[in-house]
């Protein structure tokens, strides 16, 4: 099979790594014999590849045994914590595992949805006419606070990623972008600032997040 010049060029790194199939390699080598530009490009890439043994030599690799022993200690510690009966995080993880296991089957998921629908209809049908409860927004004291956060997103964060992150936090952009890429976002759902900041900083789409005072 013959490949065009652009495809052959793209094959160079894979050729160096031995990641081409037999037929691709044969076609590449045939093209190489008659294409000095491809040959030149290959030699430049080979020069880069040849740097790696030296780069590797400079990496201070730690003792494999010591790191493995740290990993096992870390796993033990986490498993002990998980086995602790009163760990709320553990209960949550178990609940998540249970939900995952349960809803993995579409049939069960539909059955649960059907039960929920029946319950909903029953509850709405039997609700008293008089309202004997008060919503937070119906007056009196409210615990709702507004949290504003200065935020800079990563350059490669896509709009859909940012939107999904903000939706997850029920947050909205209220200012920005400024010349330095800064946005201000606002949350109104009685947020715990530490949790919100942790979620933001843990996101791969956020470069910087700090409360706006």
């Amino acid at each position: 099979m013959k490949y065009d010049a652009a495809t052959l060029k793209e094959m160079i790194p894979l050729y160096i790594n031995g990641r081409l199939s037999d037929s691709e390699r044969a076609a590449f080598e045939a093209a190489l014999a008659s294409d000095p530009a491809l040959k030149q490009e290959l030699s430049e890439f080979e020069e880069i590849a040849a740097l790696y043994p030296d780069i590797e030599e400079e990496i201070p690799f730690p003792s494999s045994d010591r790191v493995f022993s740290r990993i096992m200690d870390n796993i033990d510690a986490q498993e002990k914590k998980a086995a602790s009966p009163d760990g709320p995080g553990v209960l949550f993880e178990k609940l998540v595992d249970f939900i995952r296991a349960t809803f993995f089957s579409p049939r069960i998921a539909w059955a649960v949805a059907a039960v929920q629908l029946v319950l909903l209809v029953t509850l709405v049908g039997t609700m008293p006419d008089t309202q004997d409860f008060e919503t937070l927004s119906s007056g009196g004291a409210t615990t709702e606070t507004v949290l504003k956060i200065n935020i800079v997103f990563e350059e490669d964060a896509m709009e859909k990623d940012i939107r999904a992150l903000l939706n997850q936090l029920d947050a909205g952009i209220v200012a920005g972008p400024m010349a330095n890429g800064l946005y201000v976002i606002e949350l109104t759902q009685s947020p715990s600032p530490d949790d919100v900041l942790k979620t933001l900083m843990d996101s791969k789409f956020v470069r910087l997040a700090e409360p706006k005072y």
């Binding site: 790191v67 740290r70 986490q78």
Partner: peptide, 17 residues
Amino acid sequence: ESLAEDVQVEVFTQVWK
């Protein structure tokens, strides 16, 4: 060095879990 090692410990812990 030490940060890379710490993260490596965490990576393989996550792999196990």
